[in-house]
Design a protein around this nucleic acid. Structure first.
Length: 759
DNA sequence: GAGTTTGAAACT
DNA sequence: CAGTTTCAAACTC
């Protein structure tokens, strides 16, 4: 386990910037620890506190600078801010038990678990007043969410989650829960009294008896779902420094393991050191970082070059795969969803179904473009589920399972959770860099699944999707005859998904059985054009967001990255990728006679009518609404958000005329151009084929690693900055240094995981 | 459903 | 980089 964990960790570290420094520091810290223990201060503390000195290992963890710096933010930061925090940082903070105050607690917990709870609390207060505060908050929160600890189906998850994770990991360190709890409460993650209970009760011996472990686990799994596999492994990575051993022991003691294969997975999950916040983080990051990688050792082993591509592919593919395999379980899942004993499986399968449905439905082939929808998180789940497939081949990774579970319970069992999560975190998710691959299909599919669940058979549903819930456009699959679905001609392939049943392709190689071929081809194409699989249409955050004006949710600033080359269609038909993507033409376009209803290349897009248009959009289901969002209409949450956030704030923005050239810039900045002009010839645009990413992403929201990612090389884009009055806040300069386009970066990166250096 | 049109993707 | 070919979606009938 350790070896594997290390390997994983190493791989992970490379990905995560945060880890890198950490590792190097560990040794140094460790060396310094000895001195620290000898220091007068340390002795003094020891005298004051009953807590026994913590093992050097713990301390080393504690010392991590990152945790120190970030931790305060966690406590103090409001929900919004927290959401925007770097995931990695956050994860790091939260996951890192190393805070000084905590460390002592931790040590105490380990050594003195038998001590009365009060004592622990007192100690805790002494050590960290903030911890106590948080604890209180947690309690309050818990009060709000009462649930029966014994009931697996109840909201217990949170508690179970905490127990599983924290108990095993931290062995009754209440303080640890604090940050988490707060975070969780903010996010709608349930940290409840149980948590407290768990904290106080953390007696390993008791654990099994107090609550049904399995049920807890299963419940916990829900929460765990949010965690990314990466995190899961990450702890392990850190394990050397962290209480790996302790964790393991605790696990053994607490976790009954009786659970079968799944149980193992669960166990793994439970062992995750991460905390609640982490869970959120993970969840968010899931898209960005391929969980599958971690899950699948084989993948890890793969050369990094391949890994990115591979993973990206796999995820997508997996989704389909899973779907197919698990689709039949779906109905069963529904009926059994609430069954505690089978929660895990059910959840997992269920999730798979969701994804499956989406996939099967064939909706949204253009995954690349996929936008961040509320479902994004769902997508993540799907991916996770997809990764489940990976499990088959290589690893019994738990990480895979957890997400699906979350989906399950959240949706099926706990409406509240769903609501809280979705509303509070949707934004986060949206903000998150999503994998390009998430396809509309999946997104809409999820919804469709929900709908379907209620009434119809899978086939019916599928058919329904194919026909296009949204409209005719989104539900088709490929129909390739000669390309073998291994070229970008193939929408499935281009979207990064395997062809599925609905496809009418011939000699299709875009199937799991030809995975190697697919990956190789994909890699080849990527080598030719790194952004080949990136979203064609990117939605950049508008200038407002850049300028820091959050008040308005940015206008739609989506544009086709490369621009169209229409000659005859006038950019008024779906032949035009811009039009198809629901975005206006930009400077990048070489189109002739552009009449793009979403915005003309020359910037002459009808603005006067824009306002009306926008209003109409918001009030109606007009596909145009999706333009900026580029999300399939099907998603309820999304729909809501759209109405709310819709960038059509463009109305608020100065008329295009005021920014004559702005529209020109690449997808990233053009704001003004974004207006959906209403033209005499205007035709209601079709549901966007492509989805833009990051519409709401704030600069700050973007993880640094993403910011640092190399920008798109292959795309022809004009420099946004050229026309911009106010340069972007210097966050991430693209390596090229031409534009500070974090937006630009975001566009490319998010959608295309493989491109990111972190992979 | 067959045929045409179109423009992206691929190739040279 | 430009021109040509191939391809499959979009469109028309």
């Amino acid at each position: 386990m350790e070896e594997g964990g290390e390997i994983i960790c190493s791989a992970k570290e490379e990905k995560e910037v945060m880890d890198t420094p950490k590792r190097s520091k560990n040794t140094q810290i460790a060396t310094s620890i000895g001195k620290f223990e000898e220091s007068p201060v340390f002795n003094f503390l020891n005298n004051l506190s009953p807590i026994k000195p913590v093992k050097p290992m713990h301390i080393s963890q504690t010392i991590n600078p990152l945790s120190f710096t970030t931790l305060p933010a966690v406590f103090a930061s409001p929900h919004v801010s927290s959401l925007r925090e770097s995931r990695f940082l956050r994860r790091h903070q939260l996951s890192d038990p190393s805070k000084p105050e905590f460390s002592s607690d931790e040590g105490m917990a380990v050594d003195k678990s038998s001590e009365p709870t009060k004592k622990l609390d007192e100690q805790k207060e002494n050590l960290d007043p903030r911890a106590s505060e948080f604890e209180k908050n947690v309690v309050e929160f818990g009060e709000n969410f009462n649930y029966d600890c014994n009931s697996p189906n109840s909201n217990l998850r949170s508690s179970s989650y905490l127990k599983t994770k924290h108990m095993a990991e931290y062995a009754c360190n209440p303080s640890r829960f604090v940050p988490f709890g707060e975070e969780g409460s903010q996010r709608g993650i349930y940290v409840s009294e149980v948590n407290q209970e768990g904290i106080t009760q953390i007696d390993p011996n008791k654990e099994p008896s107090s609550c049904d472990w399995e049920s807890l686990i299963s419940d916990a799994s829900d929460l765990l779902v949010f965690e990314s596999p990466n995190d899961y492994k990450k702890p392990i990575d850190q394990g050397s420094s962290l209480c790996e051993n302790d964790m393991q022991k605790n696990l053994d003691a607490f976790a009954p393991n009786e659970q079968t294969g799944e149980g193992n997975e669960q166990e793994n999950l439970s062992t995750q050191p991460g905390d609640g916040s982490e869970m959120m983080v993970n969840f968010e990051t899931n898209d960005m970082i391929d969980a599958s990688l971690l899950n699948d050792p084989s993948e890890k082993m793969d050369s990094e070059n391949l890994s990115g591509l591979y993973r990206g592919m796999r995820r997508r593919c997996l989704v389909f795969d899973m779907s197919g395999a698990r689709s039949k379980h779906f109905d069963d899942m529904q009926s059994d969803a609430n069954v505690p004993t089978q929660d895990q499986q059910l959840v997992l399968e269920k999730t798979g179904n969701d994804s499956t449905r989406c996939v099967l439905s064939g909706i949204g082939l253009h995954l690349n473009a996929l936008a961040t929808t509320p479902k994004d998180y769902k997508i993540a789940n799907h991916e996770a589920s997809a990764s489940g497939r990976l499990q088959i081949s290589t690893t019994p990774s738990s990480s895979v399972n957890f997400q699906p579970q979350t989906t399950n319970q959240d949706f099926s069992n706990n409406n509240l959770a769903i609501v809280a999560f979705s509303e509070q975190q949707i934004e986060t998710f949206e903000n998150c860099v999503l994998p390009p691959m998430e396809d509309a299909c999946q997104v809409s599919g999820y919804i469709a699944n929900e709908e379907i669940n209620q009434s119809s058979s899978p086939k019916k549903k599928k058919r329904r999707l194919e026909q296009g819930v949204e409209g005719e456009s989104s539900c088709k699959r490929c129909n390739c005859k000669k390309s073998k679905c291994l070229k970008l001609y193939c929408e499935c392939f281009a979207a990064g998904v395997y062809c599925v049943e609905p496809c009418a392709c011939m000699d299709c190689f875009n199937k799991p059985i030809h995975e190697d071929t697919v990956l190789a081809t994909r890699k080849q194409i990527e080598s030719r054009n790194p952004l080949a699989f990136a979203p064609k249409v990117v939605r950049g955050s508008d200038s407002l967001s850049e300028t820091g004006d959050d008040s308005s949710k940015t206008p739609a600033s989506a544009r086709h990255k490369r621009g169209c080359n229409c000659k005859k269609s006038g950019c008024l038909k779906k032949y035009c990728e811009c039009y198809q993507g629901g975005v206006g033409c930009s400077i990048n376009c070489r189109c002739e006679g552009c009449k793009n209803a979403f915005g003309r290349k020359d910037g002459s897009g009808v603005i006067g009518t824009e306002l009306e248009f926008g209003e109409d959009e918001t009030t109606t289901e007009n596909p145009l609404n999706l333009n900026t969002e580029s999300v399939p209409p099907a998603t309820p949450l999304r729909a809501v958000r759209q109405s709310v956030q819709r960038p059509f704030s463009s109305k608020k923005k100065p008329p295009r005329s005021s920014f004559p050239s702005i529209g020109s810039s690449s997808s990233v900045f053009y704001d003004s151009s974004q207006s959906y002009g209403k033209q005499s010839s205007f035709q209601p645009p079709p549901p966007p084929k492509f989805v833009e990413h990051f519409e709401t992403i704030g600069e700050d929201e973007i993880p640094e690693f993403l910011q640092c990612v190399s920008p798109i090389s292959g795309i022809k884009m004009s420099s946004p900055n050229q026309k911009r009055v106010s340069p972007p806040h210097g966050v991430g300069m693209s390596p090229g240094g031409l534009r500070s386009s974090r937006k630009l970066i975001l566009q490319s990166i998010p959608s295309f995981p493989s491109l990111t250096p972190n992979q």
